[in-house]
Computed example of a mutant assay.
Amino acid sequence: MFLAWKEITFNKSRYALIIGVLVLVSYLVYFLTGQAYGLSQDNRTSIDKWSADAIVLSDEANSTINMSMVESDAIAAIEGADEVAKLGQIPVVMTSQADTDEEERITATVFGIEADSFIAPNIIEGQTFTDDFEVVADISLQEEFDLQIGDQLPLSIIDETITIVGFTDNAKFNVAPVLYTNLATFQALRSLANPNAPDIVSAFVVRAENPDKITLTDDNLALYPIAEFINNLPGYSAQVLTFSFMIIFLIIIASIVIGIFMYVLTVQKIDIFGVMKAQGIPTSFIGMSVVGQTFILATLGSGIGLGLTLASAYVLPSAVPFAVNYEYFAIITGLTIGFALIGSLFSVRVIAKINPLQAIG
């Protein structure tokens, strides 16, 4: 390791170039990971807040809550559950008056719930809703659109205005901020699509100590584990798979890049290694120096790239779906360094084949 570090400090410009390339590649990997994780969280944070085990939808909805409509009294058909909460879900478009006096349209998702149910949101500012068309909004609406408690926002689908009375955190569904309100408000919004069935909800959210014992006595209902429900959210699985493959390939590319750099440097130093072997320095010592040098370069490149990513997280606007997951970052760092060390073994193989007499000439 001493020899590896001495060479790096002696040839600063050469190794600074290698580290620079690794920093850029690792920064891209970490940043994409943060975006992928942030985007996936924006699809599901409101669901995770439920701490639920399953969800009941209409049988014909194909596990999609947007297409689900069930009668409210169908809750009696759910047996074996510890807690069941009614949930109405519908997308809405609101109009906000910006500082420039220009109207700005905001897309959100309304969750109609009972205020005392277990899926009611935590309040970080203001209070919970107590009347029709009062909502508790995700805090992102305050951060992105400067909405405040008491703001009244006209709805596009109905001649009514909602009033923000409180804010909660981590409440997004399909990337849209969630507005929590009572079931009566949801019924008023939903009745536009189905005026003949006013007492309709979208789903029943279920908690159970043993979800396998939950049974449904109504054939028009279907039970889905929460994990399956999340995976079936529109676009969720495709986003996760796409970003996962991109990140894996970038890690492999970064490892190949550092492996090629080390191989080229090893070939350039064949004469030097030949002299070292002629002086009696064992191949294992020289090989370990190359591996140690690879470890130093990969660690520095990954560390600086990670530091830049964490710094970027503090300056990114709230509209950018970015979230830090230290566990993922640690795994990526370990994989990058591990693959880079594996790649350095090709250079060790070259060193082992060096004939001191031929190298000296």
Rank of each mutant, 00 (worst) to 15 (best):
I65L: 09
A81M: 08
S46G: 09
A81N: 06
P121L: 06
A85G: 02
Q97N: 13
I75Q: 10
Y37E: 12
G38H: 07
G112E: 07
M69Y: 14
I78G: 02
S72I: 13
Y27G: 08
F31G: 07
E103N: 14
Y37K: 09
E104V: 14
I90D: 04
A52L: 01
D116M: 07
V92T: 09
S96F: 07
S72W: 08
A77W: 08
G34V: 03
M67V: 03
A61P: 04
L87G: 03
Y30V: 07
T64Q: 13
G80S: 09
G38T: 09
E60N: 14
D42K: 10
R44H: 00
D82T: 12
Q35W: 13
Y30C: 11
A61T: 04
Y37M: 06
T95L: 13
E103S: 14
K49R: 14
F31N: 09
A74S: 15
S72Q: 10
W50D: 02
D116S: 14
D82H: 02
S68H: 06
E60W: 04
L57P: 02
T45S: 12
Q97V: 14
R44F: 00
V70Q: 00
G80P: 06
T107M: 12
T107S: 15
I65E: 06
G38C: 08
T100E: 11
E71D: 13
D48I: 09
E114W: 06
T64Y: 06
Q97E: 15
Q89G: 00
F111G: 02
S58W: 05
E79A: 11
M67N: 15
V84D: 03
S63H: 11
N43C: 04
D116T: 13
